[in-house]
């Protein structure tokens, strides 16, 4: 399959200014409905929105859902930002999100026992038998494959932490302070050049890749969009705040080691320039802090304060590992077959 560079219409501009990309092309009836509608002003969307594919990774469902959520992030060039709270669009978002979540919930295994929530989160991580992209990259990957992974992850990492800000008003006390402590780090401790999304954009720019949000949206398969949509979804409703905290905790608990391997893989491929590697080196140290803050001060303290949501915290952790496992299998299986893991 084809390589990972931006397509010719997405030329990289010299100045790092926040620019919006246009809408992607549709991949099926649901995404076509949205892409067509969003090109015009806000108006009522048709009532039915059902995916015929597997809601866990259907490209059409997940592109449509991603578009719905994206209107509440950076948005798209040429799309009226008032779409963000158009009731009929929110209804489509809710329908598609619930289909995804129902399918995901039906695929989760039993919850492990343990002394407390941090202990049980460790057990969930230990029970995960998904392949590791970070290990594959360190041992086998070519430069093209590293660039592919950067493309996949750009969908979230160029807006890293933005979904989670929404959850803060739903928390009180220690878990809230812990989430603020983590988010403050994600946003560079108040320094724009240290914001993690900016470090990621600088990495892409330095490698000659397109650093604009959603520049690569046409290349991302459903299994990639599902990872971002799960985060957005769990940040969309107060009822799911426990699951979001479990999702974030396991993200942080597994991140340092993965980023250490990414950084080592980049150095092995002689891509260790400071501006390329900074994002990954930063995450080794930052996420070592976030690891324990998220597990104990955030998820653990939340489950003690709201014990009726302790199980939800653990389910959120399982959901994360399920979608990340599906993503990792897709990527590694594609590469093992000598193919690209991106859409053509």
């Amino acid at each position: 399959m084809t390589p990972t560079k931006a397509n010719p219409s997405n030329t990289v501009t010299a100045e790092p200014e926040p620019v919006r990309c246009g809408l992607p092309g549709p991949v099926g009836p649901l995404s076509a409905l949205l892409v067509d509608a969003l090109a015009g002003g806000p108006r009522g969307l048709p009532g039915e929105a059902t995916s015929l594919g597997n809601p866990l990774d259907d490209a059409d469902l997940h592109l449509a859902l991603y578009l719905c959520f994206e209107l509440n992030y950076h948005g798209f060039a040429g799309v009226d930002s008032d779409w963000a709270d158009e009731p009929s669009l929110l209804r489509v978002r809710r329908l598609l999100g619930e289909q995804f979540l129902a399918a995901l919930t039906g695929n989760l295994g039993p919850l492990p026992d343990g002394a407390d929530v941090p202990d049980r989160l460790e057990a969930i991580i230990a029970a995960d038998d998904s392949p590791s992209i970070a290990t594959y990259l360190l041992q086998h990957a070519t430069e093209e494959q590293v660039r592919e992974l950067l493309v996949h992850r750009s969908a979230y990492l160029l807006k890293e932490a933005d979904p989670h800000v929404r959850v803060l008003p739903w928390l009180r006390g220690r878990p809230k302070a812990a989430l603020v402590e983590i988010l403050a780090d994600e946003y560079g401790g108040g320094r724009a050049e240290r914001m993690h999304a900016e470090l990621y954009a600088r990495c892409l720019r330095t490698l000659g890749m397109d650093w604009r949000e959603n520049a690569y949206l046409d290349r991302l398969p459903g299994v990639t969009l599902a990872t971002v949509n799960l985060t957005s979804l769990l940040c969309a409703r107060p009822r799911w705040r426990g699951a979001l905290l479990g999702h974030l905790a396991v993200t942080e608990m597994t991140s340092s080691e993965a980023n250490r391997r990414y950084a080592a893989a980049l150095r092995r491929l002689h891509l260790g320039q400071r501006d390329v590697i900074a994002y990954f080196d930063e995450h080794v140290l930052a996420d070592a802090v976030h690891d324990v803050v998220a597990a104990h001060d955030m998820a653990g303290a939340f489950a003690r304060a709201e014990p009726q949501l302790a199980e939800s915290v653990l389910r959120g952790a399982q959901m994360l590992l399920h979608v990340e496992g599906a993503f990792a299998r897709h990527v590694i299986n594609s590469w093992a077959a000598g193919a690209s893991s991106l859409r053509g």
Partner: peptide, 26 residues
């Protein structure tokens, strides 16, 4: 330290001492 809160290695196994890099779990 580059950040307001730092994690100092306690297991001795970190490759970024004095800072923690998550090795304690491994």
């Amino acid at each position: 330290a580059s950040r307001a809160t730092v994690a100092l290695c306690r297991c001795g196994g970190s490759r970024t001492r004095p800072f923690c890099d998550g090795t304690h779990r491994l």
